[in-house]
């Protein structure tokens, strides 16, 4: 561990604001990317399934 305590870890010397805002933004963007990828995948399947069901019943 490079830090003595949890609060020292969170403070990051005098750079806590910078380090954690950079990581916070990055985490949000990466999580959005994963969410967008998986929801697109699910949506595509739902759209196609509906289309196939409709063409079968017709």
């Amino acid at each position: 561990m490079a830090f003595d305590s949890l609060s020292a870890f969170l403070m990051m010397g005098k750079h806590g604001v910078y380090v954690w805002s950079a990581y916070g933004f990055s985490a949000l963007a990466l999580i959005w990317l994963v969410w967008n990828t998986l929801s697109t995948r699910q949506k595509t399947r739902n759209i196609l399934r509906k289309r196939f069901v409709r063409s079968q019943t017709r």
Partner: peptide, 21 residues
């Protein structure tokens, strides 16, 4: 990188942004 890597002698802890940047 955030918790265990040593502090940079010049930039202090702000250098830890390197691990995502």
């Amino acid at each position: 990188g955030l918790a265990f890597a040593p502090e940079d002698y010049q930039q202090g802890n702000s250098f830890r942004i390197i691990y995502i940047h």
